[in-house]
C-alpha cells in the first residue's frame, strides 16, 4: 500500500529534516512510528499529506502503485490518504457539518459516486458521532472553534471514520488526551482496522499503543528509521528511553 524509499526532505530554509526514510506498509497493517522530539515524525506526516513548506530532495513515496508526491494534497485525500492533525485548525465561520459534507462529497465525486443528500449525510453522521461520544451540538459549531483539546482530537478521528480512508496517518493524536478521551480515540481507531486499510500512528509515547496494538513499531531518530520491530519494541523503548536506541546506526 505504502512504499517509502530513501526519502529526504528539507524545510524551505534549507534545514534537512528527513535523511533517508525507508518504510513499507501493507494493507491491513497498523504501524507505529515513535521517536523523540525533533526526530522528524511530524515532518514525515506533513510530507505524506502534502503540506507546503518542504522540499523533497531525494527518494520516492509510492501509494497504491502511484507516485504520491506528484499529487496535490486534496487529490491525495480523495485517493484515500487521511492525516489526523496534531494541531487541528480552527476555522471560524465554517460550520462543521457543512465542511464534512463538502469533504465527503468531494471524495464521492472523485470515485464517480452520487453525492449524499442532507438526510443520508445526517444518518451517517449520527452513527459515527455515537461511536466517539461527540455531541451533535458540536457539529453545528464552526470547525474546531471553541473545542477543547480532547474534542479536537476526537473530531479528527470522527472525520476519519466518516471519510473511511485507505491509509490513515495519525500525527500525535494521543498527545494532550486524558485517559477517557484516549480510550474513545482508541475505540475509533480500532473500529477502522480493516484488511484493506493501513494505519500509521506517529507518537511520542507508548500510551496509545496499549489500546491500539501495532503490527510493527519503528523508531525515528535524526531523520532516519533506526530500528524496527514488533509491538514489544514499544514497551522496551518505554523502559530504556530513546537515548539508547540507534547508537549502532
Amino acid at each position: 500500500m505504502l512504499e517509502i524509499k530513501n526519502l529526504h526532505a528539507r524545510l524551505n530554509d534549507g534545514r534537512e529534516i528527513l535523511k533517508g526514510i525507508d518504510l513499507h506498509v501493507e494493507a491491513g497493517e497498523v504501524h507505529a512510528i515513535m521517536g523523540p522530539n525533533g526526530s522528524g515524525k511530524s515532518t514525515l506526516a506533513s510530507v505524506l499529506a502534502g503540506r507546503g513548506g518542504y522540499e523533497i530532495t531525494q527518494g520516492s513515496v509510492t501509494y497504491e502503485g502511484r507516485d504520491l508526491l506528484a499529487m496535490e494534497a486534496d487529490e491525495r485525500a480523495r485517493e484515500g490518504v487521511f492525516l489526523a492533525f496534531q494541531y487541528p485548525v480552527e476555522i471560524p465561520g465554517v460550520n462543521n457539518m457543512y465542511f464534512l459534507r463538502a469533504a465527503l462529497n468531494a471524495a464521492r465525486r472523485h470515485r464517480g459516486e452520487p453525492e449524499l443528500d442532507a438526510g443520508q449525510f445526517l444518518r451517517a453522521v449520527r452513527a459515527k458521532l455515537k461511536l466517539l461520544e461527540i455531541s451533535e451540538d458540536l457539529m453545528q459549531r464552526a470547525v474546531n472553534v471553541g473545542f477543547s483539546g480532547g474534542e479536537k482530537k476526537r473530531n479528527e478521528i470522527f472525520q476519519m471514520a466518516m471519510l473511511e480512508p485507505r491509509l490513515a496517518i495519525l500525527d500525535e493524536t494521543d498527545s494532550g488526551l486524558d485517559i477517557d478521551a484516549l480510550r474513545l480515540v482508541a475505540r475509533g481507531v480500532n473500529g477502522l482496522r480493516a484488511p484493506d486499510r493501513a494505519i500509521v500512528m506517529i507518537t511520542h509515547y507508548q500510551r496509545l499503543l496499549d489500546y491500539v496494538e501495532p503490527d510493527r513499531v519503528h523508531v525515528l531518530q535524526g531523520g532516519r528509521i533506526v530500528e524496527s520491530g514488533d509491538k514489544s519494541l514499544a514497551a522496551e523503548l518505554e523502559r530504556r528511553g530513546y537515548g539508547a536506541v540507534g547508537d549502532a546506526a
Binding site: 499529506a49 502534502g50 503540506r51 507546503g52 496535490e72 494534497a73 486534496d74 485525500a77 480523495r78 487521511f82 492525516l83 492533525f85 487541528p88 485548525v89 476555522i91 465542511f99 464534512l100 463538502a102 469533504a103 468531494a106 471524495a107 472523485h110 470547525v143 472525520q159 471519510l163
Partner: peptide, 18 residues
C-alpha cells in the same frame, strides 16, 4: 489562512472549493 486552506485540502476539498 494557509493553515485553514491546507486543513480543508487535506480532507479532499479541491483548492477552488476550499
Amino acid at each position: 489562512d494557509e493553515a485553514a486552506l491546507f486543513y480543508l485540502r487535506a480532507r479532499g476539498i479541491p483548492l477552488e472549493e476550499a
